[in-house]
Design a protein around this nucleic acid. Structure first.
Lengths: 147, 147
DNA sequence: AAACTACTTTACGTTTACGTAAACTTTATC
DNA sequence: GATAAAGTTTACGTAAACGTAAAGTAGTTT
């Protein structure tokens, strides 16, 4: 048994910190397929998973169209003939390559941030030195303040 | 000595596989600051680095505005007083947190792709079995074709 | 029953990141 | 010196991803 079977639009909005407008937009774009009770939308836990995937995709720089493509492909694959399955496998390979690229990007960014931080700290140290030279009398007061 | 000192717009466009239109747009948004000889733009190796950073930023899901903000901040920091330097350090911390989030996202995505691939291969195996049962006479021909 | 709250549809507006076309200038090549 | 190739400005167009009213409905609390 799952935690919960169905969700309202505002529950999901709160949980994932998106607006209801966005959720309705995702439905409009056919990334979510809530059922209805009267007019009000009822989201399944499958929808919830999909929303999570949509948002992760966005953080990873995917467009909604790309994410939808993946959803659709996966749905097709499930009821899949051989061609669909093989197609999915090659697509998975491509996505893996994309992820590798992103990991490289992140590693690069981390290295650059390391050097940036180092330079910042150097510059700060320089400023501290100058201060001491200009006002050595304050040393004691400043040292306690540095905590 | 660097490889090269200056670059034309089309050189950069080719190297990084973007249109000249994009590069001009980046200049318009003040992410690049080429000098001019007459009318034609001359890009420095600093501009080249920046272009590389812009594109990496895009792959990481950053908007141009965010990237510009970082550039500006870094420029300010270089001529920096203490406040600027400290601000930069906290911003670096935040960015590191973002990168951590992205690494988690990627790890999750990789796991999901693993299970997706496994299911694909299972489904394929199922199909193969069925085929064999339906047409065991063809086995030899198919096996050579599977190469 | 009145008011409040959550939800709905419809539809126009906005920002970002370019694409595309038109008309012009500069630079290299034959 | 003609002509092509590469570069330029100006300006309108567009797709994506929502934001933001406006105006109505459905259930629920007082």
């Amino acid at each position: 048994m799952d935690i919960k079977q169905t969700y309202s639009i505002s529950e999901l909005a709160k949980e994932f910190d998106v607006t209801t407008r966005s959720i309705r937009f995702y439905e409009d774009q056919e990334l979510l397929r809530p059922t209805r009770r009267g007019q009000t939308r009822i989201f399944s836990s499958k929808d919830r998973v999909r929303l999570k995937l949509i948002l992760r995709g966005k953080r990873m720089g995917f467009s909604l169209a790309e994410t939808k493509e993946l959803f659709d492909l996966w749905d097709e694959t499930l009821s899949g003939n051989e061609k669909q399955l093989l197609k999915m496998l090659t697509i998975l390979e491509n996505k893996r390559a994309q992820l590798e690229q992103q990991k490289n990007d992140i590693a690069q960014a981390e290295m650059e941030m390391d050097t940036a931080e180092a330079r910042c700290r150097e510059a700060l140290a320089e400023l501290q030195k100058k201060k001491k030279q200009q006002a050595p009398a304050n040393e004691e007061a400043r040292q306690t303040a540095e905590n």
